[in-house]
Amino acid sequence: MKEASLTKVFIALLKRDLLLAYRHRAEIFNPMLFFILVITLFPLGTGADTKLLQTMAPGIIWVAALLAAMLSLDTIFRSDFEDGSLELLILNSHPTSILVLAKVLAHWLATGLPLIIISPFLALFLGLDQDVIGLLIVTLLLGTPVLSLVGAVAIALTVGLKRGGILLSLLVLPLYVPVLIFATNAIEMFSSGLPITAQLWILSSFLLLSITLTPWPTAAALKLSLS
């Protein structure tokens, strides 16, 4: 039997994971629901002062997105680890790092993208201007894939553990700080009319760096978790 080409395997894996995500829709909706709830809580906690909410909006949305992304990480490898398909992923002849990339991409499409789609409405809740909302979406598009990619390393390290929850947040959140800083900073600068090309370039370079660098440690960590 001829071995399937890497591209074919990549696409097949992507399709499979997306189909699985579609069948477990609740797992996609949970982080989204969490995202909405956290953002609704903020005005209730700080008071509905429009000015205050406007200045805090980018930070609130980004922190909520960070937490929602972290909560959803568990679904990347968990079910595959439990039913043993993760071992097949590692044992086949294709480089694990590329296959990992397919899984992370599917995960981002299933959990990251929905967050981005609903974020404009939540931004309206917090009273952001329309042109600022456009930029918010751009930063989320550049930033959330980084969260998934970096998070994949940490989840790969902890997938074999029964209670990895709080440990995961300790591993992941410090690594998320640069994305948070540059994304919220871009929005803030933009609302006060300053140029933001530097921030966007830096966010893009984070994305490129994490696409090229994180699959290796993720693959290595998966192998370790399965040993």
Binding site: V153, G160, L161, G164, L171, A221, L224, S225, S227
Partner: peptide, 15 residues
Amino acid sequence: AIPDKRVASRAVALL
């Protein structure tokens, strides 16, 4: 958190 210390130290090295 990882019970097998050999595995744990390799995980730590990666992290």
